[in-house]
Amino acid sequence: MAGWIIGVGVAFAGVWLALVLALLLVTPGRPQLTEALRLLPDLLRLLRRLAADRDLPRGVRVRLGFLLAYLALPFDLIPDFIPVLGHADDAILVIVVLRATVRRAGLPAVRRHWPGTDDGFAALSRLTGLDR
């Protein structure tokens, strides 16, 4: 019985480590990360508006709904006590999902729902690679 419990613990640790490594691979640069954290309130409003837009493809809305549900949960993929990544996993996931949303729904949809300033949208464009 103890061997089975140890095996499950090792499996969970392995999955957690794989997720940490995956987030490290998609982590934006440090200046971009601080910029993303400053934009977080506008980003959350944008995500909510995009998820409610019936003109967007269903897959995009479902993806955005899952992201909003994850952001509302009291626990994180990476615990907050881990330096840098512990507090940055939300920003990283938002950026990854927004990149996928823009590829699928288009830049005009994101621009139409952006609640912030033009400077904020320019920062969002740099963070998500929309300006390329």
Rank of each mutant, 00 (worst) to 15 (best):
M1E: 14
M1K: 11
M1C: 11
A2D: 14
G3W: 12
G3I: 00
W4V: 08
G7Q: 13
V10E: 06
V10T: 15
A11G: 10
L17H: 08
A18S: 15
A18H: 11
A18V: 11
L19M: 15
V20Y: 11
L21V: 14
A22M: 12
L23A: 09
L23S: 08
L23N: 12
V26G: 04
V26L: 09
V26P: 01
T27F: 07
T27R: 15
P28V: 09
G29V: 10
R30W: 09
P31E: 13
Q32T: 13
E35W: 03
A36S: 10
A36I: 06
L37H: 15
R38M: 04
L40H: 15
L40A: 15
L40T: 10
D42I: 05
D42S: 15
L44N: 09
R45T: 04
R45H: 07
L46G: 09
R49V: 01
L50I: 05
A51P: 08
A51H: 14
A52W: 01
A52M: 03
R54N: 07
D55A: 12
L56D: 05
P57E: 05
P57Q: 07
G59P: 03
G59H: 06
R63I: 03
R63G: 03
R63K: 05
L64V: 10
L64S: 10
G65V: 02
F66D: 09
L67S: 05
A69S: 14
A69Q: 14
Y70G: 04
Y70T: 02
L71M: 10
L71G: 02
A72C: 07
L77F: 10
L77Y: 04
I78F: 00
D80F: 06
F81H: 12
F81W: 14
F81V: 13
F81D: 12
P83A: 10
P83T: 04
L85S: 05
L85V: 13
L85T: 07
H87E: 11
H87R: 15
A88K: 00
D89C: 06
A91Q: 09
A91M: 12
I92L: 05
I92Y: 01
V96W: 07
V96H: 04
V97W: 02
V97L: 03
L98C: 04
R99H: 08
T101E: 03
T101V: 09
T101S: 06
V102N: 00
G106M: 08
A109F: 01
A109T: 08
V110H: 03
R112S: 11
W114G: 00
G116L: 07
G116Y: 01
G116T: 02
D118P: 12
L124W: 00
S125H: 13
S125A: 15
R126G: 07
L127Y: 04
L127F: 07
T128P: 07
L130G: 09
L130K: 01
D131T: 11
